[in-house]
Amino acid sequence: MLTEEERRDIEREILQNERKRAAAVEVLKIVQKHRGWVSDEIHDLAGILEMTPAELDAVATFYSLIFRKPVGKHVILVCDSVSCWVMGYEKILDQLTSRLGIGLNETSADGQFTLLPVACLGACDRAPAMMIDEMLYTYLTPEKIDGILEKYR
């Protein structure tokens, strides 16, 4: 069941689009903002967007930043593209996985962090790079990782 607040945000979003279904991705993001991920709300949303649940789920499962399963409180997007790889991505990943006790695509046991790979973040001149939630971190070194993670604990 969608909350009143979600419904309000969704209605407002739909009004800004030429057609209802054009709002699909943004509407999924609204639910995700409130709940962290998108669950069976898909059915309610599909009705509002005048799509079938299957159509909307096909959209939801396509985009890598729409989550159809629970993720941690903070999502770490670590760039694994070529410039970051040349500049030491593997060391960054090793540090992240050993500090968090999880591998790529996993969520830590305390539910704090999910670790996902992401395509080039457009910060290749400041590689290696990653994002935590909406914040970009650049010029990463294994030593810097601990301090950064500390801010989110």
């Binding site: 057609r19 279904r21 709002a23 985009y63 890598s64 930043l65 729409i66 992401v118 395509a119």
Partner: peptide
């Protein structure tokens, strides 16, 4: 003029995939 913020995947940059993305479809 409006801003559309996407939700990941490289293929969205291919111009016809981008059109599908803007229409609320799989890109």
């Amino acid at each position: 003029l409006r801003l559309h913020v996407s939700a990941g995947r490289y293929i969205c940059g291919e111009e016809t995939a981008l059109l599908n993305a803007l229409e609320g479809k799989r890109a």
